[in-house]
Design a protein around this nucleic acid. Structure first.
Lengths: 104, 104
DNA sequence: CGGATCATTAACCATATGGTTAACAATACC
DNA sequence: GGTATTGTTAACCATATGGTTAATGATCCG
């Protein structure tokens, strides 16, 4: 995977930023308010989100506008759904197993 | 999040193990074959998967049976789908924005 | 120009992560 | 008992991660 959205989402602060951005593009300060860490810490999380392709940034004057990249996050969502589909089969396997065992 | 499935899924080998286990419970050696790393490395990945609640282990003789825990992975899948739903709205927001701008 | 504002970079630190080889543990088999 | 099989633990190493404070960049505004 070139973009690795799962790496991006592996920290709660970064998931929080993604949640904030779901409402639409926002300046850094707005998208990252309320996480209780310093600005440099935020800057680093944002950098990870950018490097993994989850967000993009447009600088406009002194404010940096940050936007979600749904396609990249979609890769993660798709993987999860593919897995979920397979778990369904897994339940069937377990069911069959229980059937073979017969009723108690 | 007490269980953090996203942390578990943040490494490609661990995602690979999850994929293998989607077919059903398997012994460690079977669930983790073909990743090109040493057994201790595998052991550690498995430990992470266990600690985050993504898999459970049952020891039977000298083979350790590993199983997926769909509920825990479901937390991650649900989060992704909630986000995906919000991205939908995001597209609408962008559409509205483009409408306001008017046709070129 | 000078100060306030928005945000990053630099330098540093502690701990986590991901890998290795070597040794160990426990069970299975002859 | 001796050896093969399955898997973990111990010790070690390099790099990544996540945080800090202090300094810097860049823009806006009076």
């Amino acid at each position: 995977m070139v973009n690795d959205p799962f790496k991006a989402l592996s920290h709660p602060i970064r998931r929080g930023i993604v949640e904030q951005l779901a409402a639409g593009p926002a300046p850094v300060g707005e998208a990252t308010a309320g996480f209780g860490v310093s600005k440099p810490a935020i800057s680093k999380h944002l950098k990870v989100l950018e490097e993994t392709g989850v967000v993009t940034r447009v600088v406009e004057g002194r404010t940096h506008w940050v936007s979600l990249e749904p396609e990249v996050l979609g890769e993660a969502a798709d993987w999860m759904e593919r897995q979920r589909a397979l778990w369904g089969r897994l339940f069937d396997v377990v069911d069959e197993y229980l059937k073979e065992e017969g009723p108690k």
